[in-house]
Design a protein around this nucleic acid. Sequence first.
DNA 1: TCAATTCTTGAAAATGATTGCAAATAGATA
DNA 2: TATCTATTTGCAATCATTTTCAAGAATTGA
Lengths: 328, 328
Amino acid sequence: MVKLRDIAQQTGYSISTVSKALSGKGRMSDETRKNILSVAKNLGYTPDFYAKSMASKTKTFVLGLIVPDITNPFFAYLTRGVERACGETCLLMLMDSFRSLHREEQLIRAARFYGVNGVIVGNSRVNDELIDEISKYVPVVIFDKECKCDNVVSIVVDNYYGAYLATKHLVENGCKHIIHFGGTQELYVSLQRAQGYEAAIKESGLKSHIVRVGYTFDDGYKAAKKLLNERNQFDGAFCMNDLVALGVMKALKEEGKKVPEDVAVVGFDDDKQLCEVTVPSLSSVRQPVEMMGETAGKMLLELINGQSNTKKVIFSPSLVVRDSSARR
Amino acid sequence: MVKLRDIAQQTGYSISTVSKALSGKGRMSDETRKNILSVAKNLGYTPDFYAKSMASKTKTFVLGLIVPDITNPFFAYLTRGVERACGETCLLMLMDSFRSLHREEQLIRAARFYGVNGVIVGNSRVNDELIDEISKYVPVVIFDKECKCDNVVSIVVDNYYGAYLATKHLVENGCKHIIHFGGTQELYVSLQRAQGYEAAIKESGLKSHIVRVGYTFDDGYKAAKKLLNERNQFDGAFCMNDLVALGVMKALKEEGKKVPEDVAVVGFDDDKQLCEVTVPSLSSVRQPVEMMGETAGKMLLELINGQSNTKKVIFSPSLVVRDSSARR
DNA sequence: TCAATTCTTGAAAATGATTGCAAATAGATA
DNA sequence: TATCTATTTGCAATCATTTTCAAGAATTGA
């Protein structure tokens, strides 16, 4: 491990001169600097991060981002947003809890020991106590959850509004029987979306019909299959997420229904890899994930710098209309 | 920021005693320890990570994983594999270079200062010099690249064989005119796949037809569209990756060709989110990504522990047959 | 009561860098 | 030659912690 001392010995200069030569701060003859620089390069010198950030009081920021499942595109794009907020000024440490509560707790605790100056927790099931505890030591930004703690900023999406938008869109496209293929009841997100759906339905004088399905392709497929076999008539489907929507579409196709002519379908999440690639392409409610990530990063940096002006940021989703619901 | 000195002043003990009390290492009276601990808690003391890890030269057992694009499912699953190798014994630090060469270099250099004991570099474009340099200080595992350096293990996939498998499968399903929708020529991976395709074609006495396309959905779509408009006849398509395959399928559908009846299609990468979700579901060549990640993690741990027995690990891909190529 | 032993505690060096200030050197001017 | 200025360089303190070693206090046994 090459240190300043080694370079000093090689060149015959003092440690401080070497330091100044490398940082470009001190004044010295060109010859000296050139000499030192070349020796440093030869020896393959790299500054010790810890020593450096201890000696100079300029903090090098490391932001920690904890996600439940990195293979989920939602979190992948979230990551990208945070990264953008980091820019060149700080590094991002991404930790995947793999949906394990235990691991998530472990990671949250570990974060503050690994030189992390702040933590972003994406969509966590961790109990509030842990967040409270950790936020005493390290600023925290958290998704889809609120916290009274000083050091915490919440970032949420208006799921209600997104569901409302999607349903309204189906109504405006002439759908008369719109089924909501929803998630399980425990999840707050599911509840919000179901309520948004109901509001739009009621407003339009239609009858609401909610099926509790789940979150996977299979969940959507099976539920739709069952409904169709039971001769349930419907001409619109607002689905919990894109995967469910695709499952529904597959069932429809198998049963000889055309999308969007017979049944219009809208998903949620707007996973582009999925929505734009299928035939027909899938309409979906888009959350501005990347921007949310960027905002999270910015908020966290503000918190770290002690300028926490905001407690909560709410994002509005928008509707992306593609072929699966374009009836006209 | 509360430091040891503050606790020392409050309690009247020396800094070193305080340090020992907190770390639990030194021997001292219970009273002293209890006293120090409570004051530390009151003041909300948190150890300075930098000072700590500078003073104690202890290993942290954090593995660094650098990927070019975390939104790419391939790397997301790779990550999952590495995580599995980590288990409970070490933590994973994931860094995304966002396909920026500059950032990748920055990350590789930075890695060894963040308490990272080893680095896994996924699919890097970084020049070998940097790898050589960094591997002097920290063990490295690298994908799709080889390196003579002592501290480096390479992990590669037999792309040639994968392409061969896919093409052979099309032949066995009765295809007579199989087109390869390939990637650009620069990429080593593209070249290997094209060669595997050619070998299988030659072996079967058919005529090879390679179209240099690219890597995106649009690339596949446009190329297929063009071929069909030019009245090029083909009944089989082996594509560079799944996205290209889906593009080709969309073009086929638009031109009234049925998959797999008129044209059988096979992709590469076996991105499940894509392959299983489309209609028809897409046959694809599967790389054992997750296992590759796990192996990478294990290799790295071995390197760290100084038992580097292996220099290179080659993985065999396999073919996953789904509806898009199932003719019988 | 004295020596031996154990327990508790603190002084000080080390970690690898930064940085203000002083010293040394060189060149220029009187 | 002495003085002054500008330039170049290095000393030493600092950062927050760990850790070794030794000193001092308390306890034990004879």
